[in-house]
Design a protein around this nucleic acid. Structure first.
Lengths: 133, 133
DNA sequence: CTAACTGCAAAGTTTTTGCAATTGC
DNA sequence: GCAATTGCAAAAACTTTGCAGTTAG
């Protein structure tokens, strides 16, 4: 649950900067733990708690996106451009859907529900070509 | 991750039946724990483990749906009709989107990605009218 | 009879948090 | 200097699992 109203002053921190760079430079959709392991290669003393705190902060600021498939794990995405995801139900892999125009209007949903819509997520699931064999 | 190939013989169980009825007769999107509490009112000895086992089994059989927003919790939905969800980022409430024709073609995604698509999820998020005050 | 299912409790995962020390502005 | 941030470790939250006993077919 994102607290939308909470405006907090943030300082630069090299840990946060590192996390953001890792997320921006990888093309995958990593877990917090993967980011932690990756971050340790550059900063061997960074802690997992810091990784989580910064991922939450960055997501709340809208500088990264948090994805969520199935229970348990969150995945993070540093690509803010409008795009959607496909997920393989067998191997769990998550990939971007290259380019598709949504044709779903947030405004239409606002009229239907009375919600003020900020964003939408569209996720496809099925079986990838490797797993189909 | 859903194991698609696993076909298992199932017996009737009153616990599973109860869980399914609870889910079908409520219009909300409850957590496993809420279902557990509700189930205890009818069957005071049912265990949380049994609730989880049955929710997973029912979801794997496609008799219920598992939703997932943010980290931590799964929500369950007994309504199998095609529909989408809106979620309030402030209070966390999840509601159905009354009626909308998707206009998203799974087939188009199959062509783009090479995945064999089974389903898609579309979720809107924003702020509900109560929380907007 | 026997494989599926259950309750219980213990264990597993993932994420959050309290605290004292550190750091950016 | 002060508030934001950190590392650490402990705790919290959620889900799964092993086991011995029970139940549906």
């Amino acid at each position: 649950m994102i607290k939308e109203g909470k405006i907090k002053k943030t300082k630069f921190s090299k840990q946060r900067d590192l996390i953001l760079n890792i997320l921006r430079s990888c093309s995958c959709h990593p877990t917090a733990d993967w980011i932690f392991t990756e971050a340790r290669k550059t900063n061997p003393t960074i802690s997992l708690g810091t990784v989580y705190r910064n991922l939450n902060l960055l997501a709340a600021e809208g500088r990264i996106r948090e994805l969520c498939f199935g229970k348990g794990v969150s995945l993070y995405d540093g690509d803010l451009r409008d795009h959607y995801h496909v997920r393989c139900n067998v191997c769990g892999k998550v990939e971007d859907v290259p380019h598709i125009s949504p044709r779903v209007s947030d405004q239409q949903i606002e009229e239907l529900t009375g919600y003020q819509i900020h964003s939408h997520r569209l996720e496809f699931s099925g079986i990838c070509s490797e797993c189909r064999e």
